Amino acid sequence: MTSSPAVPADEPIRALEAASELLKALASPVRLGIVRELAEGEKYVHELVTALGVSQPLVSQHLRVLRNSRIVTTRRQAREIRYRLTDDHIAHIVLDAIRHAQE
Rank of each mutant, 00 (worst) to 15 (best):
V72Q: 03
E11P: 12
I34L: 03
V45Q: 00
R36I: 08
A6Q: 08
V30Q: 09
S4G: 12
E80Y: 14
T73V: 13
I93Y: 10
A9G: 13
A78H: 06
E11H: 15
S4D: 04
R79Y: 15
L23W: 05
Y44L: 14
A25P: 02
A15F: 13
A18K: 13
L85V: 00
I71S: 00
E40P: 05
V30R: 14
E17L: 08
D87E: 15
A91Q: 06
R84E: 10
A91S: 01
R67Y: 01
N68Y: 06
R82M: 02
R31Q: 10
I34K: 15
V45D: 00
I71Y: 00
V49D: 03
P57C: 06
I13E: 11
P29V: 09
I93K: 08
V30I: 13
V7Q: 01
T86K: 12
R14L: 06
E11D: 10
R36F: 07
G53T: 05
H92D: 12
R84Y: 13
E42I: 02
A27H: 08
L22K: 02
R76S: 08
T86G: 04
E11Y: 14
V94D: 02
S28L: 03
V45A: 11
P8C: 04
A51R: 15
I93M: 07
R75Q: 11
R70M: 07
K43W: 02
S3I: 15
T86I: 09
S3R: 09
D88R: 15
A6H: 13
P29A: 14
E42G: 12
D10Y: 09
E80D: 06
R84M: 06
A18L: 15
A25K: 03
I90W: 06
Q56N: 10
G41S: 03
R82S: 11
S55W: 02
H62V: 05
R70H: 04
L48G: 00
H89G: 07
L95V: 14
S55H: 14
V94N: 00
R31H: 09
V54I: 12
V59K: 05
N68W: 04
S55I: 12
L38N: 04
R82Y: 07
E47V: 01
Y83P: 03
P5H: 11
E17K: 14
L95C: 15
E40G: 10
H46C: 06
G33Y: 14
I93E: 06
I93D: 11
Q61H: 10
L95A: 12
D87V: 02
A18F: 07
A18T: 08
T74F: 15
L48W: 00
R36S: 06
E40I: 01
D87H: 11
L52I: 08
S69W: 01
S3F: 10
R67L: 09
L66Y: 03
I13F: 09
T50D: 12
V65G: 03
I90P: 02
A15R: 13
Y44P: 01
A9N: 14
L85C: 03
K24P: 01
V72K: 02
V65M: 09
D96P: 13
N68M: 07
